[in-house]
Design a protein around this nucleic acid. Structure first.
Lengths: 204, 204, 204, 204
DNA sequence: AATGAATGAGGATTCATTCAT
DNA sequence: GATGAATGAATCCTCATTCAT
């Protein structure tokens, strides 16, 4: 958590630091980033860095939380539809919303990528935490769908959630960075969801 | 590729080095491992390390190839069943074989994990290569199943393969390292395969 | 070029580092000098070295430029006489001025020696650059003398310049380090110049 | 000096080692050459190297002496003319003979270059020794010319010798490696000798 | 005698964090 | 509070020489 003094900085300076650090973590993977890189991008003295943050992990976590908020503004409208419509119908739009976020703020989106691939143990814990969060959320939605009869009750909702989450957190992110178009990505997702809905087995 | 001299070492010393290096790469992620760590675990002098290997990547690749072979002895019997039986019936046993390997050589198994998460570009290439290999193999099996009518022809075999591969390469590995029992893991896999086979949607 | 921070050091510290590094490069040839030698002579920590300089070449070039300036204060009065008097009359005094510099700052003088013998390609380029500079300067002076009729017009001024430059850059430097006295060196130079002026052949 | 055992090797093996080492020292400067380079070029085991030679310096010196002999076969006919004709008339042919040697055995010739520029103190001593030898020889020839009246008696023969030697040992070697043609080099030498003979001063 | 594996000191460079001003 | 200079441990890799077989 950034130190108090950081929050007492002028809005403008705080923004400069935020944007600088986002730049750094976008350019380099978490493990490769050095404090020197960050202060260069933020244009703050080395000493100041340690005035504002504990260390590299601290800035990173700060940025993660900030990004999380930004992403929520994209996702919220879609998430709110859940409960009113079957989740399985809403899910493709959740993908789409995520993709919209990615297109609007590719640098922020890239964080998800770096978060995922970081070696650092503390960062990994965070990643696992977010994964758990994501899976749990989907799981609860699936359970709701099961209650409402949209989804078969004899399949483990956790497992469905896991597979669906992977789709978003891994495959889509990878395709995004491989330069695939939105259409390609959506086709992939829709095909995958079709499989999830109806299975791959030939009907008897 | 290790240098010739490495292969000329006594069986016993080569084993010591192999085991030492496996220990190191098991304990630390690829990027975190230093040559100092390796030589400490192998109990060889620094100079000797560079007699045997080009660099860290060289040892790592050597271990990968060794592990690959070991793993094959576990997988081969199962893979050979494909073509005679529907792949989708064989797949659970492929998981099981993988798990048996993991239980027998947990440290080797962990390599898949480290391979997956490495930042290093050369290692990433290797990882992508293996992933492509794994997905392609499953894809070809699925196509066969489609031809034989075991699997619906209107689903993209590549996407099925991707999901199935993830299941093995990511979820199972993770569960293994979270300390889940074989039963828990197999239940997860079977449930996931059930979803894949029949879909999650309630039949009309 | 030293980093900015080096120039922001206190005069006194900068001097200490300069003198220390001069000591090092005086004691050892460029190629033999290690960063460890330099920091020992400068009494600065290893990390500081890399704060101030890019690398060994960087310090060396810095010293070269510093020395160049110092030397100019010795040479300037003599060089200014060229054009007013025949160069061939001025040249002995240029030797003398160089020698005065050598006596005043033997350690700096030695740099010319190390510059000359360095193996390092970057340093060699610098050496060639300086040699070219020195020869060209003399060449232009000779041409002037030829125009004014002090020197025969049927000899290649470039070759005269080359020989004269060698005399200064090689023979005198060598004699200096062999411990010859000023008188011995001047006698040598004067004798050599006499040869250059009148030839060695017995007049018919 | 190579160890006895070296001289007891078969002619053929000794030649292979000689040629290999010449190759090495031709390719790299003395200081850059490592024992590993030498044994690779000679195709002998590391241990054997230390059986035959003390160290790198030892091989180098051996090669120097071998080359010296080879060079002598080129120079001898010319040197023998001294005493019968004025040295100053013979000298251009000595240059030419040196150049012929260089063209015939560029790799051997290159040794002179490496000898000259080596940083290693022991090698430098050798270089100085050879320089002294070369200068002394020329000096004695000049004295002879003075006695015979070919050369003015009032110039220091040592100094003439020094200048003439530099011409050969430095300028010509440099021009050779700068890729100058024989004609260019001979023109340079002849012009320089003209200066030496008649001086640069305009006759009154 | 012949071999070639073993060794470890030594070299360049980087970087997180501290601390004096 | 702000600054940025200082530090030295850590990292990779090389190589002359020895020594066991």
């Amino acid at each position: 958590m950034p130190k108090d003094i950081f929050y007492r900085l002028s809005e403008e300076k705080r923004k400069r630091i935020k944007d600088g650090a986002i730049e750094t973590f976008n350019r380099l993977s978490y493990d490769k980033v050095t404090v020197a890189d960050i202060i260069a991008d933020c244009k703050i003295p080395r000493g100041s860095f340690y005035m504002y943050f504990e260390d590299k992990f601290d800035v990173f976590m700060y940025l993660i939380s900030v990004i999380q908020e930004d992403k929520m503004t994209f996702m919220k409208p879609v998430i709110e539809r859940v409960g009113k419509e079957p989740f399985i119908d809403v899910y493709p739009d959740m993908f789409k919303a995520g993709l919209d976020f990615a297109r609007s703020y590719p640098k922020l989106y890239r964080f998800g990528y770096h978060l995922f691939y970081a070696q650092d143990n503390k960062v990994k814990e965070v990643q696992e935490h977010f994964m758990e969060l994501g899976i749990s959320m989907i799981e609860s939605f699936i359970k709701e769908d099961q209650k409402l009869g949209y989804t078969r009750g004899d399949v483990n909702p956790r497992i469905i959630a896991t597979i669906l989450h992977q789709l978003n957190a891994r495959d889509v992110v990878d395709m995004f960075y491989e330069g695939k178009t939105d259409k390609e990505i959506c086709d992939f997702v829709n095909e995958a969801l079709k499989i999830m809905r109806h299975g791959i087995e030939r009907e008897a």
